[in-house]
């Protein structure tokens, strides 16, 4: 019986491994190989060895650090805001109101619409001379070039991200909220807990694991944000909105496959370290107790 259990344990992981390993591990090894080469479009089949030069060039130049800062700021703000708004929205959906299921579907629309289309549309909407947003701002007597000023451009990208991805966090957290055992809540109510206390000491601890999942995955996805930022600002003005993923793309676009692979690996390592950090901070303690 015991022996069978061990075999069975592996069996459960097997389907995912069979599908994921071939299509991920091989490309991954190729990327590591690319990152050690001077490999461009023109010498793709005849690259020269670079050793760690690509990595050294990255960390010794200003562009990597600038993008790290932009991405760091971007990811921190959007993930923080989206998780908080998502949580509030999920709590709000616990109340009774008319048309809940219809509004639930409507709130999902921003995540469903193609990011590339959203990008082009915001390019018009935020344009100084042709945009509805700029027009509304000018009525309010706010004189600002949304996409032309460094801080404003980055803020605009962050706001768009929050607008698009809050529903995602909402959905994740709402599902978690729905599995909080009702008996626990009722018991707490009977004990005379205030609403705040109920949330802070009963619901939040129960929700923490699922919030952690939301934070980890939104962090990873926010690092990868590309489509609409690239379409709207192209990383500009200057490098004000050049996130790490845009920098990766710019190297790839220049045909410098070696540098873009090296940068991808650096980003990958950082994301994993960050996830482990979140994980040990928020979940591991809890996991041990259950």
């Amino acid at each position: 019986m015991r022996k069978w259990a061990i075999n069975r344990n592996n069996l459960f992981l097997l389907p995912s491994l069979i599908i994921l390993i071939p299509i991920s591990l091989i490309p991954f090894l190729i990327i590591i190989y690319f990152s050690l080469l001077n490999i461009y479009t023109f010498n793709f089949y005849n690259p020269s060895w670079a050793g760690l030069n690509n990595f050294i060039n990255l960390v010794s130049g200003p562009d990597f650090w600038n993008s790290l800062f932009v991405s760091g700021l971007y990811v921190t703000v959007v993930v923080g805001a989206e998780v908080i708004f998502g949580l509030l929205l999920a709590l709000f959906f616990n109340y009774n109101f008319y048309g809940k299921s219809v509004l639930f579907v409507i709130i999902m629309i921003p995540v469903i619409i193609s990011q590339a289309v959203v990008g082009y549309m915001f390019l018009i909407m935020l344009s100084d001379m042709f945009g509805i947003v700029s027009y509304i701002l000018s009525i309010l007597n706010v004189k600002i070039s949304i996409l032309g000023e460094r801080a404003a451009a980055l803020a605009a990208m962050i706001l768009i991200d929050i607008l698009i991805w809050t529903p995602y966090c909402f959905l994740v957290i709402y599902a978690g909220l729905k599995t909080v055992p009702s008996a626990v809540l009722e018991a707490a109510k009977i004990d005379g807990a205030t609403k705040y206390k109920l949330f802070r000491y009963v619901m939040l601890p129960l929700l923490l694991p699922i919030i952690t999942v939301a934070v980890i995955f939104r962090t990873i996805d926010a690092f990868k944000t590309f489509d609409y930022v690239y379409i709207i600002t192209g990383g500009g003005p200057g490098t004000a909105t050049t996130t790490l993923s845009i920098l990766i793309y710019k190297y790839f676009d220049s045909g410098n496959i070696g540098m873009s692979s090296a940068l991808s690996l650096l980003v990958l390592i950082m994301a994993i370290l960050l996830s482990r950090l979140y994980y040990s901070f928020l979940v591991s303690r809890r996991w041990q107790t259950t």
Partner: peptide
């Protein structure tokens, strides 16, 4: 998590 993080554009040629 590393899978989720895979930088798509760089993966494009191997994939």
């Amino acid at each position: 998590l590393t899978l989720r993080m895979t930088p798509p554009i760089v993966f494009s040629i191997p994939i």
